[in-house]
């Protein structure tokens, strides 16, 4: 029996290509900017965008810091070559180090967040220069676990992957022009040498995705998820991470005063007029 997370990749790719083409075109943009890390998420987004808009309409931006694994650059360039998209390399070491020199006590997490926000800052600058929308690469697992930097990699105009779990992104990647080394290596935020997502998180994506799928998509109660053969401690950990990080998935809270407050009782679709 196949996993309940198994997707129909051709169906998903078709919906996502249409999403990228229509949601960019109807707001008057025909182009996108994507930060390309050498990992699977941004590789998938790059492939889909190249197919949806044409490779010349996609600018892939490689944003290495001095500790970035050279293999990441090599893999990112392989994606550029396979998809035929335009690309730029913008090194972020100078601006990140200029700031970090003043905060030598900064933890690896703070340093990683700073890098993620510098990358966002460059992507948004290029988005204006290019008249292109910033396309994000955060998947559903990361968003639910809060495993991303607010105003860093979580900042973008469109996100084609936000409703796919990490293991589903891999399923999709295997049907696209994603180079083999990108599929083979362990997922990493690459914020410092040797970093691994699964070591950081303390559990595997396979387990996290199963738990999240049953809690979120199937709306099973935690005890029902445990009854499927998952560890009670892990189910509790994943559920708590999801709860704690709800704030990252919402706009800032606005103190209510009037009878019509933005996003509470002033409710308009974003595609208003498009």
């Amino acid at each position: 029996m196949s996993s309940p997370l198994t997707i129909n990749p051709a169906l998903v790719a078709g919906i996502l290509r249409g999403f990228l083409a229509e949601e960019t075109a109807k707001v008057g943009f025909g182009r996108v900017v994507v930060g390309l890390s050498g990992g699977v998420d941004s590789a998938v987004v790059c492939c889909l965008a190249a197919e949806a808009l044409g490779p010349q309409q996609v600018l892939a931006v490689l944003l290495p810091y001095r500790t970035t694994d050279p293999a990441s650059m090599r893999d990112a360039l392989a994606v550029v070559e396979r998809t035929g998209v335009r690309h730029r390399v913008v090194e972020i070491t100078a601006q990140v180090d200029a700031y970090l020199a003043g905060v030598p006590e900064a933890s690896p997490l703070r340093r990683g967040n700073k890098m993620a926000r510098e990358r966002m800052s460059v992507l948004y600058d290029l988005s204006l220069a290019e008249a292109a929308l910033v396309v994000g690469t955060s998947n559903k697992t990361e968003l639910l676990l809060g495993y991303g930097t607010l105003h860093g990699d979580m900042a973008h105009a469109l996100n084609p992957l936000g409703d796919l779990y990490k293991t589903q992104v891999y399923e999709l990647a295997r049907t696209l022009a994603v180079p083999e080394p990108v599929l083979a290596k362990a997922p990493s935020a690459d914020l410092w040498a040797g970093q691994s997502d699964e070591a950081d998180l303390g559990f595997t994506y396979a387990d996290a995705d199963r738990i999240l799928y049953h809690l979120v998509d199937e709306r099973r109660r935690p005890a029902e998820v445990v009854a499927l053969g998952l560890s009670p401690e892990l189910v509790a950990t994943v559920r708590e991470r999801m709860r704690q990080n709800q704030y990252k998935r919402r706009l800032p809270l606005i103190a209510k005063l009037s009878r019509r407050t933005i996003d509470r009782d002033f409710r308009y679709p974003r595609d208003w007029g498009y």
């Binding site: 196949s2 309940p4 997370l5 198994t6 997707i7 129909n8 990749p9 169906l11 998903v12 919906i15």
Partner: peptide, 12 residues
Amino acid sequence: PAQGVQGPDGPL
């Protein structure tokens, strides 16, 4: 609206 993409060859 399109929702539900499960199953390797499944329909929407």
